[in-house]
Design a protein around this nucleic acid. Sequence first.
DNA 1: ACTATATGTCAAATATATTTTACTTTTTGT
DNA 2: ACAAAAAGTAAAATATATTTGACATATAGT
Lengths: 66, 66
Amino acid sequence: MARNIAIKVARAEKDMTQKALAEAVGISRQTMNAIEQGEYNPTIKLCRSICRVLGKSLDDLFWEED
Amino acid sequence: MARNIAIKVARAEKDMTQKALAEAVGISRQTMNAIEQGEYNPTIKLCRSICRVLGKSLDDLFWEED
DNA sequence: ACTATATGTCAAATATATTTTACTTTTTGT
DNA sequence: ACAAAAAGTAAAATATATTTGACATATAGT
């Protein structure tokens, strides 16, 4: 899986730390980090949560070509 | 979770059965059915797979308000 | 250089998505 | 009405997402 740079950017736009975003969506900091690193695939429910907090769409943050 | 009517419609547009869609994305028929019934949340990877087969976006098939 | 905060990473434990098998109910076609 | 295919549902087993705790590295401020 590819690193998720879109989340990192959206997080920067909101001036949020990984920890802050993790807390806002109710997951651990390590999981948030792993998602950005592209180490495993979150559930759609979690993806929606992240989108809502960051004000982005699923396609913005989680689409991948191929 | 709400029933996913969008998948059902997109599937109808492609004239695909739950079984056919399940096979196309490499999951069991029961899992596909459960996803449409909204019984649990698939992983984003699986969502992307379903989107590709049905020619729809993540926002088309998996976004939910609130 | 020093301290604090943010990020990256790993291993073991836990929660939950997914499979498998099996059975029931709906729908569709003849 | 009948048969066949499609869809719905459930329980037990398996795969994998996620947590927890702990430690290492990087980055920013003084």
